[in-house]
Computed example of a mutant assay.
Amino acid sequence: MSIIGHKIQWRVLQKMSQEKRVPHAMIFFGQDSLGKKRVALEFIKFLNCQDKDSSQNCLFCKLIEKNQHPDFSLIVPKEPACEIHISQIRDLQKNLNLRPQMSSFKSVIIDDAETLNWQAQNCLLKTLEEPSAGSLLILITSKIEKLFETIRSRCQILKFYPVSFKDVVESQNEILKNEKFNPELEKIFLFSRGEPGKIINFLKTPQKFSLLFENFQQTKKLLASNLFERFCFSQNFFKKEISPEEMCSFLDAFEGYLRLVFLKKIGIKNKIYNLLNLQIAENYSITEIKKAIELIEDLKNLILTTNLNLKLAFENFLIHILPRSH
């Protein structure tokens, strides 16, 4: 089983199964990249497993993992609007009305459930109000507030949190597939904010972490620079065409730097801090750093949801993000 951390949540799910009180609908809620979808998959495999020891090596488990099991459905947002449409939910309703072919029940994961448009949410609500016998729906979301209150009230909510460094170390063999222990693991963990998805991504593609760390170094220079220097940086940054994803990647590094400073300022100790030279931003108050992090989150949301002029938005950001007056 390839779950990193989330031991409490897994025990809750196992107890539900043992006591035969698995609800017909659940919401797995927590920030992005925590492994919520992985836990949902493992739980559905656990419920379907044909092996007495629940080793999850049976045919059913393998089919679910490959999304080829006839009684398992995975619903994800569709391009170009990156939404889950009403047609997808209607197809799901038709599927749920059919008898299971292999299992004793039908199971569904709706990933990025916050992207259900309002028509799809209304359609899904009917399914939740009149659930099909022998069905399990798991909605995965990092933005539970975007789901209708009527949907939330009809689902059992399970909250997920960032994992501990100890959990990551214990799972390193699964992450690295028996490669040598990565000496950068603790640094990667700090930059990943305890999100297993990011940790795995950085370990498997070290160049992505190298780019993040390079952007991290640029953040320190920007915070120490005056407005003229910041605009010079922007000119160089946009010499080549920058995609929204690249812009968000840079902002992730900026936010990561400020979050580490925030942790240090509130008294969280870590030997890695001394290697990262966080002194520049330490001149700012906790309140200023929190506002700066919120500004970055708002900008990333605008970049991903609107047709924004990236250069103008970035320069406006550079004007307002922790102006050098300290």
Rank of each mutant, 00 (worst) to 15 (best):
I321T: 03
P70N: 14
K300T: 02
V169G: 04
F237L: 12
Q156S: 12
L263G: 03
C61A: 05
Q14D: 05
L310C: 05
I268W: 01
Y273R: 09
L251K: 00
K290R: 11
N270T: 06
F148Y: 14
L158Y: 02
L125W: 08
K166S: 14
K66V: 04
S325C: 05
A81V: 03
K239I: 08
S153C: 06
Q207T: 15
Q88W: 03
H85E: 12
V168Y: 01
K291H: 05
Q218S: 13
I84C: 08
S285G: 08
N307A: 08
E255H: 07
K36Y: 13
D71R: 08
Q119A: 13
L211N: 10
K271C: 09
D53E: 15
Q88P: 03
S87E: 15
E297A: 10
L13P: 03
A281T: 07
F213H: 07
V108I: 15
L41M: 14
Q156N: 09
P77A: 02
I266C: 00
L227S: 07
V168S: 01
I64T: 09
N277I: 01
L158V: 14
D51W: 03
G267D: 04
S325N: 14
S142I: 00
L211A: 10
S225A: 14
K20I: 11
P323M: 07
R230I: 04
N270Q: 06
F238K: 09
R21C: 14
K291Q: 12
S54P: 01
I286R: 08
F28K: 04
G197A: 09
M1D: 12
A81H: 07
A224I: 01
L63Y: 09
K126M: 08
F237M: 05
Q9C: 02
I242L: 06
E114V: 00
C61S: 14
E179Q: 15
R38N: 13
I321Q: 00
I319Q: 03
A253G: 04
S234F: 04
L278H: 01
K106A: 05
L98H: 14
K269W: 00
E214S: 14
W118V: 10
L227P: 00
K166W: 04
L59W: 06
Q93P: 05
V163P: 01
I3C: 12
L275C: 13
F160Q: 10
L223R: 02
N270E: 07
L299N: 05
L322Y: 08
L299V: 05
K37I: 03
N95K: 15
V39K: 07
A81S: 12
I303Y: 03
F60A: 11
S73V: 14
E145T: 10
I109N: 02
E246M: 11
Q217W: 00
L34M: 05
L212V: 04
I27W: 01
P80I: 08
L63A: 09
A40H: 13
I75C: 04
L185D: 11
L63I: 06
H326V: 06
T305G: 03
K187N: 15
S234C: 10
N48H: 10
Q9K: 06
E315P: 02
Y273L: 08
F254V: 02
Q14A: 07
G35R: 07
K291M: 03
L34P: 01
I8W: 12
N226P: 06
I272P: 10
E170K: 15
K78A: 10
V168K: 01
N117I: 07
K52V: 08
E149Q: 13
K78P: 00
A313N: 05
K265H: 01
E282M: 13
F29D: 03
R21E: 10
D53G: 12
L128F: 06
D32N: 13
L222V: 10
